[in-house]
């Protein structure tokens, strides 16, 4: 199966894709770099792949907050998904807006009970000296704002919840 996902690497979009080329062969693109690799799935759910003559083993799952938790050999990472053009992190369509990265909440532009449009900017975060605008993603009413401006939040932390407007 082919795969595509936009990851967020230090605030920048990193497009990653894999295309099957035939028996155990894949073309994998990470940003601007293209690789051809051989890969096999193992019975325990891990994947073994060969890149430039070296074998690696990995396993990954996608978490409810949109991050991919990867274990590769003896190392692990949580790989966040790219927020997209002004979209919030995670599942914006269900109105749950989570922090795309660990950082500081610069401002919260809405209060609980306030109606919002999907394109409205609801909060601004800062990390790695870059500002990230988070939009509502859906039309609705702000149900919950558990953070305030100035708060330091972990990646994936709940910033806002918006209740979908009845339609």
């Amino acid at each position: 199966m082919s795969y595509h996902r936009d990851f967020d690497r230090e605030g920048e979009r990193l497009a990653v894709s894999a295309q099957p080329l035939g028996e155990h062969r894949f073309r994998v693109t990470v940003g601007a770099t293209e690789h051809e690799v051989s890969a096999w799935s193992l019975p325990d759910g891990r994947v073994r792949f060969e890149l430039d003559g070296t074998l690696h083993e990995a396993i990954a799952v996608t978490l409810p907050d949109g991050r991919v938790h990867l274990r590769l050999g003896d190392r692990s990472w949580f790989l966040p998904r790219h927020t997209g053009r002004g979209r919030g992190h995670g599942h914006t369509a269900d109105g749950v807006i989570t922090a795309p990265m660990t950082g500081t909440v610069l401002s919260v532009l809405v209060v609980a009970g306030q109606p919002v449009k999907s394109t409205d900017t609801v909060a601004v975060m800062s990390a790695m000296k870059m500002e990230h605008k988070l939009t509502a993603g859906i039309d609705g009413t702000v149900a919950e704002v558990p953070v305030a401006a100035g708060a330091t939040v972990e990646q994936g932390a709940l910033l806002l919840r918006i209740e979908k407007a009845d339609s």
Binding site: Y3, R9, R46, V61, T62, R75
Partner: peptide
């Protein structure tokens, strides 16, 4: 851990292609 190298993203893409677990609905 140091920031994820390209190899990590490559591995994630292969896991996504080869194992249903990556795209599977997470366990609540």
């Amino acid at each position: 851990s140091e920031p994820a190298p390209d190899l990590a993203y490559l591995a994630a893409a292969l896991c996504g292609s080869l194992t249903p677990s990556v795209g599977r609905k997470p366990v609540a």
